[in-house]
Amino acid sequence: MSISSRTQTDIDRAAGEAAPVVPKAGSMFGFSRTQAIAFAIMVLLVVLCPWVLYPVFLMKVLCFALFACAFNLLIGYVGLLSFGHAAFFGMGSYITAWTVKHWGLSAEVAIILGGLTGAALGLVLGWLAIRRQGLYFAMITLALAQMVYFFCLQAPFTGGEDGIQQVPRSSLFGLLPLDRDMAIYWLVAFVFLAGFLFIHRVVHSPFGQVLKAIRENEPRATSLGYRTDDYKLIAFTLSCTLAGIAGGTKALVFGIATLTDVHYSMSGEVVLMTLLGGLGTIFGPVVGALVVTAMENYLAQFGAWVTVTQGAIFILCVLFFRKGIVGTVGGWFRLEL
């Protein structure tokens, strides 16, 4: 598996250079001490930033951060590179938008439906793709996601080129209206933090232990009696569920679901975020999402240069910072983040 072996070389190098001793935390939800501190800082930032920065921008960051964390669960902990994650993000987005707009569902139900859509689609597409290894897996996920894209282009319910527009933000539990930015912000923050902790739990569960074994040496895991395809499929489905939730949440925030969300460039973006932040690190995807989203926002005035800049950063990352921002900086201080 070319992809996972590349990730492994990186971790190898990290282990060789710094030989980080991983402290086995007892109680802190599987967080090491540094991770617990970093998590506390992250929560603090999530709570404080909307008073200083534009909340809509922050919500976009948080949605993409959850999306990237979901993607990282696969690439970082199972060694599976999905090139089609936009399909799950986008379909989640469409279903949440549609059910809120046409059925008037409350926000939390619509988001859950978005997640279930991601799960169902992930189960089917994952089942088709999971038997292939490495780059073949990546190619099949890309191909399947393209089929989802063309389905969305043709299907009447998605509104084709226009997408689903003017989606109301609905309300929480049918009670608390979410129209104000600061109201929906707390919902988004909750969804993000819950998703983040969920992923962390998955990684540090008996199941996660088997996932890591598969990432490290799949034939060996098989020889110990684990049916590795089953584990990969469950991990894939979990990741797609979270991608669907992230998409649905984003649709509510912006009141719109469009083809952009299912487009392959969205799949590329989540790869970029994760790579830039540091794959296989728990905070990397969050940092990556922040940087990429900020770049898009603040460089938007330069038009096509955003894409060029992103491409350049991507190349620099692959060439010089293969552990990403968090992996590299963490390496300087010998911290495992």
Partner: peptide
């Protein structure tokens, strides 16, 4: 990881390690 096989399939992703 080998001893863990005794639990059967470890699909419990919600439980702490």
């Amino acid at each position: 990881l080998a001893l863990q096989r005794a639990r059967g399939a470890s699909f419990d992703f919600w439980r702490s390690e």
